[in-house]
Design a protein around this nucleic acid. Structure first.
Lengths: 167, 167
DNA sequence: ATACCTGCAAAAACTTTGCAATTCG
DNA sequence: CGAATTGCAAAGTTTTTGCAGGTAT
């Protein structure tokens, strides 16, 4: 739980990018590299615009439109996923393997929880309802480590009226 | 699994609204009633604009801005929740009790799964990581009943490249 | 009576698209 | 070189805000 997270799928993402681009016969552009690199290097779940800001550091010439297009491409290639978030802006994650999420009631941060840190969750059988389940993940609410420190009481009480957005 | 879902928290939502408004000392307006009623009467997880469209049927004079504001109020009152959805538009749900969601790979629909239909999921203990968990729910991906019927194979294969948005 | 809300209109934030120039293989 | 992509600018969506008038308690 403290080790650098043996990221199950952490083969250098940029190598994957090259492979996937070749597979699909599409060009491996500097922009695609840069966006993927920016996204893979962070632990949070940035919005498209936050990715844009980050990429600009390395590649000042990139445009916002390209960032959006590249993000779409990366999602299509399976190198990036759009994550489910209650906010009304798209958020992206370079961790494409199955994992869980905690949404902090206080700061609104979405933090990854490695499946290894939780008892295993079995694929539920909903065939009785005609539903075929492919994948399950947990969505937790509570207090992230940082906010838990600053908050008295040992149980997480309830959702804040609205999380401050500054994780 | 087939009964009309004995909705654990289905006390007439409009009664709750009156109570909550009184508690908070805020007016019970026709618009608040109408938005809550529209939301409570559907099974899907509509966007703010879809709620607006629906409310217009009963209350043609309502404005889009009011719909957005009322939705925020209802969320603050705890009568409605914003749900986590991978789309980049806010979606709302009048089911405020804990339940699970299935996201259909094919049609993109988000369907509710009653906790009663699944083995119980215990609150994980992440105190070792300094995290306090308040609530857990499952996020499933796969095929909804309707799409499962139209799709051959008994296992859910993998995510469609991008779900058609027409659940 | 008064505090809060609504509608309207305008602004802000987020995302997509058309097109010429550029880049990748 | 040819196909695909990028940047720019403009358009499309979604969401928020200011203000004057209206409404619930």
């Amino acid at each position: 739980m403290d080790r650098p997270a043996p990221n199950p799928d952490a083969r250098a993402p940029l190598q994957d990018l090259e492979a996937r681009c070749r597979e699909h016969g599409i060009p491996l552009t500097i922009q695609r590299r840069a966006v993927l690199a920016a996204l893979a290097s962070r632990e949070d779940h940035p919005t498209a615009d936050q990715v844009y800001q980050a990429v600009q550091a390395d590649l000042p010439s990139i445009s916002r439109a390209t960032t959006y297009r590249v993000l779409d491409t990366l999602v299509a290639l399976g190198l990036v996923v759009r994550v489910s978030h209650p906010d009304s802006v798209a958020r992206y994650d370079a961790k494409t393997y199955r994992h869980h999420h905690l949404l902090c009631d206080v700061c609104g941060a979405m933090v990854d929880i490695e499946p290894a840190n939780l008892p295993d969750v079995a694929l539920p059988d909903l065939s009785a309802a005609g539903i075929r389940v492919r994948e399950v993940s947990l969505q937790l609410s509570g207090l992230c480590a940082r906010c838990a420190l600053e908050t008295p009481g040992s149980a997480a009480p309830g959702p804040a009226d609205s999380p401050r957005r500054n994780p």
